[in-house]
């Protein structure tokens, strides 16, 4: 991948990530994050990991982000307080500084790793479906089969958690609606 293209994609990823954590509207947060995910998928393809790049776009943007959007719309959450609200400004400043220190620390570590600067050529088949499948279904076969069990457990768990229990709606109706949030009646039609 040429350097200018990488610089463009990296800038786009950072802008998208900042948008994802700083926007007040939750839908804008999710869309900013979707931008980061598509961008990372393109970066994977540039690194030769074509299959993983497409999987990233299909699984993350196509499934996980849509799930996030559905939940935001299902809960009908109105405008958020954004970065204001919650803990005091000083605490947030300390948190941001700690995260910046973490990034600086990682930069120092990377700058002391000379092997990261060497460029290596790869075989044309690197990252193709066939190469990935060969590794996945031989060395990682047991782990691959275990993920199917994990997904089954996640499906059952998600349905069990999100299900409305009998007699629960009466308890919800007893809670008065908070200001800035619609009355529960309008929400219950969707749920």
């Amino acid at each position: 991948m040429p350097q200018w293209l990488f610089a463009f994609l990296a800038a786009l990823a950072i802008i998208g990530a900042l948008g994802a954590i700083l926007q007040r509207n939750l839908v804008h947060c999710v869309l900013g994050f979707a931008l980061v995910l598509i961008d990372l998928g393109v970066l994977y393809m540039g690194l030769g990991a074509v299959t993983v790049g497409f999987l990233q776009i299909i699984v993350y943007v196509g499934a996980i982000m849509v799930l996030f959007l559905f939940v935001i719309w299902l809960l009908n959450i109105q405008a958020d307080t954004g970065v204001r609200g919650g803990a005091s400004l000083g605490l947030k400043l300390i948190g941001a500084l700690a995260a910046a220190a973490l990034a600086a620390e990682l930069f120092v570590i990377f700058s002391h790793a000379p092997k990261l600067r060497e460029v290596r050529t790869i075989a044309p088949s690197f990252g193709s479906v066939a190469t990935l499948a060969r590794v996945l279904f031989t060395r990682y076969l047991i782990a691959f089969e275990t993920t199917s069990l994990l997904l089954l457990a996640a499906i059952v768990g998600a349905v069990a958690l999100a299900r409305r229990l009998a007699g629960q709606s009466a308890a919800v109706a007893a809670i008065p609606p908070r200001p800035g949030m619609r009355a529960p009646e309008s929400r219950r039609e969707v749920a």
């Binding site: 990488f6 990823a13 958020d80 803990a87 990682l106 930069f107 990377f110 990261l116």
Partner: peptide, 30 residues
């Protein structure tokens, strides 16, 4: 050709932005 260290730097920046997001936002979805 972009050296791998640039990808690692981008990875570190994105991770730090994620840490900041968890620390400064109080909305569980964000």
């Amino acid at each position: 050709m972009t050296p791998i260290v640039d990808y690692m730097a981008l990875s570190a920046i994105l991770f730090a932005i994620g840490v900041i997001g968890v620390l400064i936002r109080r909305n569980v979805i964000v």
